[in-house]
Design a protein around this nucleic acid. Sequence first.
DNA 1: CCAACTACTATGTATTGCTATATATCTTGC
DNA 2: GCAAGATATATAGCAATACATAGTAGTTGG
Lengths: 120, 120
Amino acid sequence: MTGTEMEDILDRWSSQARKGYFEMLLLARLNAGRAYGYQIVAALKQAPGFENLAEGTVYPVLTRMKKDGLVTAEWVAEDTGPPRKYYTVTELGARTLDAMQGIWRRMDEVLLAQPAKETS
Amino acid sequence: MTGTEMEDILDRWSSQARKGYFEMLLLARLNAGRAYGYQIVAALKQAPGFENLAEGTVYPVLTRMKKDGLVTAEWVAEDTGPPRKYYTVTELGARTLDAMQGIWRRMDEVLLAQPAKETS
DNA sequence: CCAACTACTATGTATTGCTATATATCTTGC
DNA sequence: GCAAGATATATAGCAATACATAGTAGTTGG
């Protein structure tokens, strides 16, 4: 009976939790090798929790990251099919990713630090 | 030169990352032992990243968690000072926290799973 | 021409966190 | 007994942000 309730709560929660996480994930993905938008969307759709990821979600983030100088973009003509816009992480992007992961780790530590039970 | 830029980016980012995290942290804190709102605010203000935490942030979350059945609340008259409202995690709350932490872990794994570099 | 691929944008909705304020209780000083 | 301050809970309103939906537009290949 409470199973469905919990799913509703988790849906709302994970939607919020994804917000900060997604940008870091995207940056990490690009840090592992340059990629183009359509490719990223297709790949992430298979990751758990991102089944409904749409292009309208990814491209604005890519644009913002480029504006912030975290990535650079480059059009590449392909032998087959339309040209693709490849994104590559900059040095600032790599350092920023590193800092994000550091904050993420620290959050983990605070979460795991179980404070002593207060016995009234 | 890029140091300040990066801080701006990280500020915006961590503000988003906190959103989902905070609710889980609050639930974890209560899971370690019942507590009242003012106490939680005072304690969390000392945690890294929550220096500016305000009551107006915590109480709405507590109210929502109570409405969702994750916690119960109980007024307790104190020997000294005004009465306090203690929050206790319910069984649903404990299970929900467990599920949240599972999702959090899975996010971690996806983040750490470095996909093989695509060599064009 | 049509279908698939690729990039992008506009808009609506939901949510958060912060500020400010209101209310009630207890303690202290006088 | 009363005013002032500390403790404690709560809510309304605001600005900022992200996500999802849906739609546009261009290119290539059959």
